[in-house]
Nucleic acid binder design. Structure first.
Lengths: 216, 216
DNA sequence: AATATATCGATATTATATTACTGATATTAT
DNA sequence: ATAATATCAGTAATATAATATCGATATATT
């Protein structure tokens, strides 16, 4: 849903999405004392073809593998982390502190990907002023202003579909550059704003369809 | 991460993932009294090419559009819902009633996609016996047994990465056919089990990478 | 030291998804 | 009634991603 964007990089979307899996596994291997790893080993673990793994590794950096030994685990990890921005820190805000928003606020895993949620917003008076996962909740009316002042670049939308566009507009007014949209609705945005959709329904669509094919 | 599966249908994954977006918009149009809609109109709304929209529509069914008028909104909706299994009901269980699991249990949107979560499982004693979103929480030890007895076909995994494989094995032992995996780890499963991964890190990978390309 | 072998990188091929093209057709306008 | 036009369906072309092939090379084995 978010093709046609002018910021597409050389590495394919599919390859990028495989990276976090590689990364997690590589870290596990490293912790186990494994210093080098070959494409066939990784491929077998993930049930992928070894050529694809090698291509993916080639895409993250210029490091080369050695015949018979494979790749240096540490180098792969570092380069993947670099590619994924794990070494940067990007400040983000979250709009919609409901059940999903709350779950994201409580989730500790974003730091590893260079995302730091520094504040949350909602319109429900009973939530404002409270904290979830150590993040304070402000009134949505102050969204643009706070984003602007703190130079936030990433906005996370976890409000109901009906409010998604409004929140999106406010984020953009506040200078947000990238939006991670969990609302099941298409967002209308200027071309220079990156929208990354995370629609449960899209995922369910695959699951349901597969089930139908498989079980009738 | 879940290619090479023998149940791939004729319609592409990408097209399938666009369907929920179309569906949501079509329903909105229908509520507004719109009886027919053309590919160019839909394409403009989603910033897609009209050819792609037409191809996608052609993929969901054999219904044809009429030159100048377009497609009958109702027919499109019905056929998409059929494709996505919205008219079926598939029972599901969820393992891991933490913040993300809890959010999913509280989420009301699954019914629209034919998924009915009937029970949750966890290992934390303080959660067992309680309810979240009207769904009772049982001890994870009884997972296989209950899945088997109730003939559950779908399992949702929202446990931490370390426990994901164990939970997955139990689900399969209980006869689960399809797994929706939110744990950031690859699951090792027999070929006849469908695994649909929903990895936040994969999504973040795209977001981070785009930000780097765009903002440095 | 010579040979075998696992793994590599580079290039070529195939498969899949997207986009373009062309002629047909139903509605609207003249 | 005729002409103009928006939209369609079907086929062709292009772009992208996945996979296969092949010669090169570093380590291990004899």
């Amino acid at each position: 849903m978010d093709k046609n964007n002018p910021y597409a990089s050389l590495i394919s979307v599919q390859a990028l999405q495989r990276m976090p899996y590689y990364l997690e596994y590589l870290k596990k291997l490293k912790n186990g004392g494994v210093e080098t790893v070959s494409a066939p080993v990784i491929a077998k673990h993930f049930k992928l073809k070894e050529i694809q793994v090698r291509k993916d590794f080639a895409a993250v950096s210029t490091i080369k593998g050695k015949p018979r030994a494979g790749f240096v685990t540490d180098e792969l990890i570092y380069n993947m982390e670099e590619l994924l921005g794990c070494h940067n820190v990007n400040k983000a805000v979250l709009a919609g502190a409901g059940s999903l928003g709350g779950a994201l606020l409580s989730y500790g895993g974003f730091a590893a990907y260079g995302i730091d949620i520094i504040a949350a917003f909602d319109i429900r008076e009973d939530l404002i002023g409270k904290e979830i996962g150590g993040k304070k909740i402000f009134h949505a009316d102050s969204l643009s202003e706070i984003c602007g002042k703190l130079k936030i670049r990433i906005g996370i939308i976890t409000v109901p579909a009906e409010q998604a566009q409004t929140v999106c507009d406010r984020m953009i007014a506040g200078g947000i550059q990238a939006i991670w949209n969990f609302a099941p609705r298409h967002l209308n945005t200027p071309d220079n704003i990156l929208v990354q959709n995370e629609n449960m329904a899209s995922s369910l669509a695959l699951l349901s369809n597969h089930l139908i094919e498989k079980l009738g």
